[in-house]
Amino acid sequence: MGYSAQYLTDDEWMSLHDAYLANGCGPVFWQVYQELQITALKRTGDSCVKVANEMARIAEKMGATRNALFV
């Protein structure tokens, strides 16, 4: 497993990172982000809030957003 291992696999993290490098924080990046968030939610069985907060942390650390908003 990759970055924030219980939420994203290495391949998923790389996909998100590649989307960020190629598109910045534009719509394509956020589309990939949302798809991976749904995948992580299904895989982990965690609450929507927990997954959303972890994905927000990932986006913030990646630089896609300056200050993530947490639920």
Rank of each mutant, 00 (worst) to 15 (best):
A40C: 11
M55W: 04
L16R: 01
D10A: 12
A5D: 09
E60L: 03
A52G: 06
T44F: 00
S47M: 01
T44S: 03
T9W: 00
Y20T: 05
V49K: 15
N67E: 11
L8Y: 02
I38C: 01
D11N: 12
Q34K: 09
K61L: 09
D18H: 07
Y7K: 04
L41V: 03
A56V: 03
K50I: 08
D46N: 14
N53A: 12
Q37W: 04
P27A: 15
R43E: 04
A64S: 14
E35D: 14
M14W: 04
L41E: 13
D46W: 04
D11I: 06
C25E: 11
W30M: 02
I58C: 09
Q6I: 02
A40M: 08
G63A: 05
H17R: 10
S4T: 02
E35L: 04
K61S: 12
A5Y: 04
W13P: 00
Y7R: 03
A40P: 11
V51A: 02
E12G: 04
Y20C: 06
L8A: 05
D11P: 00
V51P: 00
V71Y: 14
A5R: 07
L16F: 00
E35I: 01
W13I: 00
A19R: 02
R43K: 14
S15I: 00
Y7M: 03
R66C: 02
G45R: 08
L41F: 11
S4E: 09
M14V: 07
L41I: 05
D18R: 10
C25Y: 08
W30H: 02
V71S: 12
G26A: 14
T65W: 03
A64Q: 09
E35M: 05
A5F: 04
V32A: 03
N23Q: 03
R66F: 05
M62I: 10
D46E: 14
G24I: 00
K50R: 14
I38H: 08
V49Y: 06
G26L: 05
V28M: 11
Q34I: 01
R57L: 14
R66T: 13
D46L: 09
M55E: 04
F70R: 14
Y3R: 11
A56F: 03
L69R: 15
R57D: 13
Y3A: 07
A64P: 11
L16V: 02
G63W: 02
D10S: 11
K42R: 15
K61Q: 14
Q6A: 06
A59W: 06
F70V: 13
D11S: 14
K61P: 00
I38E: 13
L8W: 02
A59T: 06
G45S: 09
L41K: 15
W30R: 01
A52L: 01
A59V: 07
V71M: 11
R66G: 11
N53T: 07
M55Y: 04
S4Q: 08
S4P: 00
V49N: 10
R66D: 13
